[in-house]
Amino acid sequence: MTQITLNTLSSEIKDMDAAYSASGGDAAVLHNHDLASLVISGNKVLNANGIEGIVLEPQETEHGVDVKLTIRKGYKIPHPVHLCFGLIPEDGLQEINMNFVAEEDSAVELLAHCTFPNAVKIIHRMEAQMHVGKNASLKYTEIHFHGPHGGAQVIPKAHVKIEEGGSYFNNFSLISGRVGVLEFDYDVDAEKDSVCEMITKVYGKKKMTK
């Protein structure tokens, strides 16, 4: 288990709580140590809380954070793992590298809110390796909020490997705020009797100006 808790009264944590709420989340879950959670602002890990059955290993980098998250063999995590990635300033770069592993016969739901409430010139790059073990289940729900200015450029890449009998469900939504630029690059390697379902919902609003 990993647990990192910084001063909850800090202005940065308050700002991320507000941004998390703006993206549709309940900020209280990020401070509940009975639930697994991870909060990243830019390249800072503001909170990382692991629970039994989960190994959570974040590492800060120059422009973001590398995250390794493992669900141990046979563990069925009863509540979602809450993730919050974001940038509060109007401009900046965030690079998130994720390595998520659901070991054999495990089950987990990851609920991620990605929020850029003031984005005028923001770049968010995400590269993910998702490995779903034999007869394991991984559900990844990702909710984005890009603010009113349309100034976010979001570039997610993911490679998903699903072993025999495993299942992977991905649900991406961006239904409030302005999109900006969004580029997906996902590929899936699915073995015998596995299931993969990927759904994306994005609302476009207003014409971008240059």
Score class of each variant (00 low, 15 high):
Glu164Leu: 02
Gln153Lys: 13
Glu163Val: 03
Ala158Thr: 02
Ser106Tyr: 07
Val101Gly: 03
Met1Leu: 08
Glu197Tyr: 09
Cys84Thr: 12
Leu56Val: 12
Gly180Arg: 04
Ser10Leu: 07
Ala119Gln: 02
Ala48Arg: 02
Cys196Leu: 11
Lys134Gln: 06
Glu90Trp: 08
Met198Arg: 03
Gly204Cys: 08
Pro78Phe: 08
Leu46Asp: 04
Val132Pro: 01
His149Asp: 12
Asn43Ile: 11
Ile40Cys: 02
Phe184Gly: 05
Glu191Ile: 01
Ile4Cys: 07
Lys14Ala: 09
Asp187Met: 13
Val195Ser: 10
Ser176Asp: 10
Leu38Gly: 00
Pro78Lys: 11
Lys210Glu: 12
Ile175Tyr: 13
Arg178Leu: 13
Ile51Pro: 06
Phe172Lys: 00
Ala190Glu: 04
Leu182Trp: 10
Ser106Leu: 07
Ala107Ser: 14
Leu83Phe: 15
Tyr75Thr: 01
Pro148Asp: 05
Pro148Ala: 06
Leu83Ile: 15
Ala152Gln: 01
Ala128Val: 08
Ala158Arg: 11
Asp66Asn: 13
Val120Ser: 10
Ser106Ala: 04
Pro156Gln: 09
His144Phe: 14
Thr115Gly: 01
Leu30Arg: 02
Met130Arg: 07
Gly53Thr: 06
Ile155Thr: 01
His79Phe: 15
Asp17His: 11
Thr61His: 09
His63Glu: 14
Ala152Pro: 06
Leu9Val: 09
Thr115Gln: 08
Lys205Ser: 11
Ala18Pro: 07
Val195His: 14
Lys157Trp: 04
Asn170Val: 00
Phe116Thr: 02
Glu12Gly: 00
Ala158His: 13
Val29Gly: 00
Leu111Lys: 11
Ile71Arg: 00
Glu57Phe: 10
Leu87Trp: 09
Lys205Thr: 14
Glu57Asp: 15
Gly166Lys: 01
Lys157Phe: 01
Pro80Ser: 05
Val45Glu: 10
Ala128Lys: 05
Asp15Met: 08
Val202Met: 06
Ser41His: 12
His113Lys: 10
Asp185Phe: 09
Asp26Arg: 12
Ile77Ser: 02
Ala18Met: 10
Leu110Glu: 02
His131Tyr: 10
Ala27Leu: 11
His63Ser: 13
Gly133Pro: 03
Glu191Tyr: 06
Tyr20Gln: 01
Thr200Arg: 10
Ala152Val: 15
His146Gly: 07
Gln59Asn: 14
Val181His: 15
Leu69Gly: 01
Lys192Ala: 08
Ile71Glu: 03
Gly204Thr: 12
Ala27Lys: 05
Asp189Tyr: 05
Ala27Trp: 11
Val195Tyr: 13
Tyr20Asp: 01
Glu163Met: 14
Met126Trp: 05
Val181Ile: 15
Thr200Asp: 04
Gly133Tyr: 01
Val195Pro: 06
Ile199Leu: 06
Glu109Cys: 12
Pro117Met: 06
Asp193Ala: 10
Asn170Ala: 07
Asn7Asp: 14
Leu35Val: 02
Asp185Ile: 04
His33Ala: 09
Ile77His: 03
Lys205Gly: 09
Ala28Tyr: 12
